[in-house]
Write a protein that binds this DNA or RNA. Structure first.
Length: 307
DNA sequence: GTCCAGGCCAGAC
DNA sequence: GTCTGGCCTGGA
C-alpha cells in the first residue's frame, strides 16, 4: 500500500482491502451520498468524493491495480492527520480476515464476501447522536434526519453535485436544537426528546466523553446507557464505531438472524446473543460482527423466503 | 387501510 | 433481571 497526493486529491495505491460500497453501505456511517460510481462523504471537517479508479484511469498509475481516490481529501498532511485514522489504515485487514476465516466456515464465507470492508473510526459525539436516531428506524430516514440536523446547526463546508454539505455540529451547536425543530424539520419522531436530553446531559457533563474514552469496555458501555435513547445495542454501535472498541458486539435484528442461523439455537434474547458473540469472537467480536452483518444483510440470511 | 423497520423506555412481574 | 406493549415516520 502506498499513498500519494496531487491536486488536493489523495490516492491509495495497491490496497485491495478498501471497497467503498462495503465500507459505507454497512450501517456504520450515515454521512454519504452515492453519486455516479462513488460516494460523496462528510467526515470530520472534510468533504470528499471517494471511489475506486476504473481500468483506464488506473493505467496512469503504472502496474498498480486497486487504486482508491479520496477526491478533495487534501494533502499528505491531511491523510496523516485525519484519513489514515478515519479509514483505520493501520489495521491489516487481510491478516484480520485470514485469522477469521480459519475460525469457522460461516466467518470464512462472510470474510470472503466482505473483502474491502473496513471499520471506520468516527467521532464519538456524532456516533451518539446518529445511533440514537437509528433506533427502530431505517437507513434512508436516519441519513435524512442527520443531514437536516447538520443543515440546521452545522457549518457549511462544501458544495457539489447541486448540494450543500455541512459538518457534523459541535456539542455547543447541537445544544441550540429544540424538540420542536427536531420533530417538525428533522423528523426524528419520539427520539427528539431523547436527543435534547442527551445533548443536555453531555453539555452538563453528567456523562463525560473524556471519561468514557478512558473506561474499560463494560463500564464505558454502562456509562453511555445513562444517556436518554441509548440502550445496549446503540451503546455498542457508539463504542465500536466511535471509540475503536473492537470487542463491542451490537445485537440488532440482523445479528439475531445470523447468530441463530449459524451459532446458536433459537435464542431471541439480545443479551444472551451478545454473550454468545463475546464467547465465540472474544476481543474481536465487533469486527467479526461487521463481516457477518454485511454478509447476512446482503444475502438475506435467516429471512424466510415467500411463496 | 395494514404492517413494520438495523430498539428504547416505562411499567409489571 | 426479564418480559411486554407502545412508539414517530414513511415506504411497501
Amino acid at each position: 500500500m502506498e499513498v500519494i497526493s496531487k491536486n488536493n486529491d489523495i490516492y491509495i495505491l495497491d490496497e485491495k482491502e478498501f471497497v467503498p460500497k462495503n465500507i459505507f453501505e454497512n450501517g456504520q456511517a450515515f454521512r454519504w451520498d452515492k453519486v455516479n460510481n462513488g460516494y460523496n462523504i462528510v467526515a470530520g471537517k472534510y468533504f470528499a468524493h471517494v471511489r475506486k479508479l476504473n481500468e483506464s484511469e488506473v493505467k496512469s498509475f503504472g502496474n498498480y491495480k486497486d487504486v482508491v481516490i479520496i477526491e478533495n481529501g487534501g494533502t499528505l498532511d491531511d491523510y496523516e492527520s485525519f484519513w489514515r485514522n478515519y479509514f483505520d489504515m493501520d489495521r491489516d485487514y487481510f491478516k484480520l480476515r485470514k485469522s477469521f476465516m480459519e475460525m469457522d466456515d460461516n466467518l470464512r464465507k462472510a470474510c470472503e464476501f466482505g473483502v474491502g470492508l473496513r471499520v471506520l473510526k468516527q467521532d464519538l459525539l456524532e456516533m451518539i447522536i446518529s445511533f440514537i436516531i437509528s433506533a427502530n428506524n431505517q437507513i434512508p430516514r436516519i441519513k435524512s434526519s442527520i443531514e437536516k440536523i447538520c443543515e440546521l446547526v452545522g457549518d457549511k463546508i462544501y458544495s457539489r453535485d447541486g448540494k450543500d454539505y455541512y459538518a457534523f455540529p459541535s456539542l455547543e451547536q447541537l445544544s441550540n436544537l429544540t424538540e420542536e425543530v427536531l420533530t417538525d424539520y428533522a423528523r426524528v419522531g419520539y427520539r427528539a426528546k431523547y436527543l435534547v436530553n442527551t445533548i443536555k446531559m453531555l453539555k452538563d457533563n453528567e456523562v463525560s466523553l473524556d471519561k468514557v474514552r478512558l473506561l474499560p469496555y463494560e463500564e464505558a458501555h454502562k456509562e453511555l446507557c445513562k444517556l436518554q435513547g441509548v440502550g445496549p445495542k446503540v451503546a455498542d454501535c457508539i463504542l465500536l464505531f466511535g471509540d475503536s472498541r473492537d470487542e463491542a458486539f451490537p445485537v440488532d435484528t440482523w445479528v439475531i438472524k445470523f447468530m441463530n442461523e449459524y451459532y446458536v439455537d433459537n435464542v431471541k434474547s439480545m443479551k444472551k446473543i451478545k454473550k454468545a458473540g463475546a464467547k465465540i469472537f472474544k476481543d474481536k467480536a465487533g469486527l467479526a460482527q461487521q463481516y457477518l452483518f454485511f454478509y447476512a444483510r446482503e444475502n438475506k440470511v435467516g429471512v424466510k423466503k415467500r411463496g
